[in-house]
Design a protein around this nucleic acid. Structure first.
Length: 550
RNA sequence: GCCCCCGUAGCUCAGUGGAUAGAGCAAUGGAUUCCUAAUCCAUGUGCCGCAAGUUCGAUUCUCGCCGGGGGCACCA
C-alpha cells in the first residue's frame, strides 16, 4: 500500500513538473507514514514540506500542485487532502484494504517474507558460552535473540548460517579440569585447597563423581597434569553436550559448532599474527605484541601476544573473524553480552585492518536478565555457582513463554523475567494472549468446516471499523518484518503480534464470524484465517509455537 | 578521569525528524442461553531528566549538565 502511494506521488510530481507547476527533481522516495490520529487519514506524506526549500514555494501550494496531478487508476483513495502545515493525508477506500487477504491467502506461510537480502550470506554467531558450566537465563536471552535475528534474516531473503564459537582452549578450560580434578581428590578423602577462582558449582562435583566411576582405569597412573587434562576434556565434552541439549530443547539449532582450539590446530592464529606483523599492523612493546587498533578507531592499542609468549583471547578472535569472512560471508553478526561491549571497537578494528569495511561486522549486545519470582529477585552468582539454569527455567515455564518473554524488550534494555508470571495462564502473560488468538481462530475454522462454510475472498463486504483496523494491521506485517530484520530487532515482531492480538480479541467479542449471512460469514472467515496465518508466521519468527487448541 | 547504554504515565516499557506522545500492568465498575472468559467493555495519567543548538517541525539529531547502569587487564 505504501509502495502504491509512493508510486502515485512520484507520478503526480512528474506530471506537475511537465505542466510547469513544479520545477525541481524529486530526490529519493517520498516518505509515507501512518498518522497516529485517525482524523489524519490512513497515510500521510510530508513531501510538500520537505521540498519547500528547493521549490521556494509554500508547502501548501506544493501540496495543491501534487494533488492536482494525482491519478488513482486503481481507485484506492476515498479522499486526499491537505492538512496542517502542508501534509497530504490519504484516506483509503475500505475495499482497497481487502487486497491483503488475497496476498496472505496466496503466500500463506511465506507472507511477510521477501527477497530483501538478495541471497547475501550472513553469519549469526550467538550464545557461544564457555563450556565450563551450564547455560543460565542470560544465555537464554542471547539464544532467543540470536535465533530470532537468524530467522528474520532467512525470512527476508538472506542466506543465513548460525554458529556457536566454543572457547575450548586456554585457561578457563584448564581451570575447569583442575576444578573437577580437585573435587575428585576430595571424594577420595584427600584434603584439598579448593581455589576461589575455580568453578564452584554442584555440577562440578557431579562430573567428578561420574568421572571417578567411569574413567578410573584411564586415570590410574596418570601424572597430575595429565589427569587434569583428562578431567578438562571429559568435563568440557559433557558440559558442551548439555549446552547442545538445552539449546535443542529451546528450539535453537546451529549449522556449525566452531572450536577455538581448531584455530590453533590449523595454525590460523599464528598465520594471522604473522601476516599482521608483515603488514605492520602489530608492533612490539614491553616484550609483548600490540595490535594498532587505534588506527582503526579503537581507544587504545591491544595486546595480541603477551610477554610470556601466549596469545590473548583477542588474538584468536581476530583469526576467527578473519576465518568467518574467508568463508564467504558478506556480513557477520555477533550477539554478545553487554559486558563485552568494550570488545566491539577492537574486533571491528581488526576486521577493518584485515580488509573489510567495518559495517560488515555488527555486534548486537544483549543486557542482563533479572530473574524474579513473584516480583522478588532470585539471587544469582556465577562465582559461587548459584544460578538458575536455562534448563530449570524451561522446566518451569516452557520454551514458548521463555522465548516470547525474552523478546518483549529491546535487546539493550534490561529485562525482568518473572517466573511466576511466565507460568501464569492469564492475560498478564503476553505469550498466551497471542497464542490464544491462534487457538480461537482454529476453533472457528473447525466450526466453519462443520457447517460447510468456506472463506470468501471475492466479495469485499467487510466494513466494520474493527475489520478495517485488522486489515490495516495485516498489511503492515511485511514491512514490520523487513524493518525488524534490517535492525536486528526481533522484539518488533513480538510487539506487532501483541498489537494484532489486541485488535483481534475485541473484534471476536463484538462480532460473530459465523452467522446466518453466508456471504458475510465467508468474508469474515477469510479475514480471521488471514489473521491466523499472520499470527502463526510471526510466532514462527520468534520461535514460538502456534497451538490449535489451548 | 575516559568510553558506551539508559532516563517517556504510579509500575514495566514501545516509539531510528512530523500534527493533540502510546501500550500493558496496577485501580474501580461491568459483560458469557451464542465461534474457547487464557477474552472483552467503561473510567485517567505526562515540564518525554534539565538547559541550549540544528530544523518549517525535536521524545527522536548535536552539544553541555544532572541521575542510574556497564566497560576501561599482557582475564576469559
Amino acid at each position: 500500500m505504501k509502495e502504491t502511494l509512493s508510486a502515485l506521488l512520484r507520478n503526480a510530481w512528474k506530471k506537475a513538473v511537465s505542466a510547469q507547476h513544479l520545477s525541481s527533481a524529486l530526490n529519493g522516495e517520498p516518505l509515507i507514514e501512518e498518522p497516529k490520529q485517525e482524523a489524519h487519514g490512513d497515510f500521510s506524506t510530508n513531501l510538500a514540506l520537505v521540498m519547500a526549500r528547493e521549490e521556494k514555494k509554500p508547502p501548501k501550494k506544493i501540496a495543491a500542485a501534487i494533488l492536482d496531478h494525482l491519478d488513482d487508476p486503481a481507485d484506492i483513495l476515498a479522499k486526499a487532502e491537505i492538512a496542517g502545515a502542508g501534509f497530504i493525508n490519504f484516506f483509503i477506500r475500505p475495499k482497497a484494504w481487502h487486497a491483503v487477504l488475497h496476498d496472505i491467502h496466496d503466500r500463506d506461510d511465506r507472507f511477510g517474507s521477501s527477497d530483501f537480502g538478495a541471497g547475501e550470506r550472513v553469519m549469526v554467531e550467538f550464545v557461544s558460552a564457555n563450556p565450563t558450566g551450564p547455560l543460565h537465563v542470560g544465555h537464554g536471552r542471547g539464544a532467543a535473540l540470536g535465533d530470532g535475528i537468524a530467522r528474520l534474516l532467512a525470512f527476508t531473503g538472506y542466506d543465513v548460517q548460525r554458529e556457536y564459537y566454543i572457547n575450548d582452549s586456554g585457561r578457563q578450560i584448564r581451570t575447569l579440569g583442575l576444578s573437577v580434578f580437585l573435587r575428585m581428590e576430595e571424594e577420595d578423602g584427600r584434603a584439598v585447597d579448593f581455589p576461589e577462582d575455580a568453578y564452584q558449582g554442584q555440577y562440578i562435583r557431579d562430573l567428578a563423581s561420574r568421572l571417578r566411576k567411569e574413567k578410573s582405569e584411564a586415570l590410574a597412573g596418570l601424572s597430575r597434569d595429565a589427569a587434569v587434562a583428562l578431567c578438562a576434556r571429559f568435563a568440557a565434552g559433557e558440559i558442551l553436550g548439555g549446552i547442545k541439549a538445552d539449546l535443542a530443547r529451546f528450539g535453537v539449532g546451529y549449522d556449525r559448532w566452531f572450536s577455538e582450539q581448531s584455530l590453533y590446530d590449523s595454525g590460523l592464529v599464528d598465520k594471522t599474527l604473522a601476516e599482521m606483523k608483515a603488514r605492520g599492523l602489530v608492533y612490539a612493546r614491553d616484550g609483548a605484541w600490540w595490535f594498532k587498533s587505534t588506527d582503526y578507531g579503537d581507544e587504545k592499542d591491544r595486546v595480541v601476544v603477551r610477554q610470556n609468549g601466549q596469545n590473548t583471547y583477542f588474538a584468536a578472535d581476530i583469526a576467527y573473524h578473519r576465518n568467518k569472512f574467508s568463508r564467504g560471508f558478506a556480513r557477520v553478526i555477533d550477539v554478545w553480552g553487554a559486558d563485552h561491549h568494550g570488545y566491539v571497537d577492537r574486533v571491528a578494528a581488526s576486521v577493518e585492518a584485515l580488509g573489510r569495511p567495518r559495517e560488515d561486522f555488527r555486534a548486537v549486545l544483549v543486557t542482563l536478565v533479572n530473574l524474579l519470582r513473584g516480583g522478588v529477585p532470585v539471587a544469582m552468582s556465577t562465582r559461587s555457582g548459584e544460578f538458575v539454569t536455562l534448563a530449570e527455567v524451561l522446566d518451569e515455564v516452557g520454551t514458548d513463554a521463555a522465548r516470547f518473554i525474552f523478546l518483549t524488550r529491546h535487546h539493550e534494555s534490561p529485562l525482568d523475567f518473572d517466573l511466576d508470571l511466565a507460568k501464569q495462564k492469564s492475560n498478564d502473560n503476553p505469550v498466551y494472549y497471542v497464542q490464544y488468538v491462534h487457538a480461537r481462530i482454529c476453533s472457528i475454522e473447525r466450526k466453519a468446516a462443520e457447517q460447510g462454510i468456506a472463506p470468501i475472498l471475492s466479495q469485499p463486504v467487510l466494513t466494520e471499523p474493527e475489520e478495517l483496523k485488522l486489515l490495516k494491521k495485516l498489511t503492515q506485517f511485511p514491512e514490520t518484518v523487513t524493518l525488524a530484520a534490517k535492525m536486528s530487532e526481533p522484539h518488533r515482531i513480538t510487539f506487532y503480534l501483541l498489537e494484532l492480538a489486541s485488535l483481534f480479541h475485541p473484534y471476536y467479542n463484538r462480532h460473530r464470524v459465523i452467522s446466518e449471512d453466508a456471504v458475510l460469514s465467508g468474508a469474515r472467515l477469510a479475514l480471521v484465517l488471514a489473521v491466523r496465518r499472520v499470527i502463526r508466521n510471526g510466532l514462527s519468527l520468534i520461535g514460538v509455537s502456534a497451538p490449535e487448541t489451548m
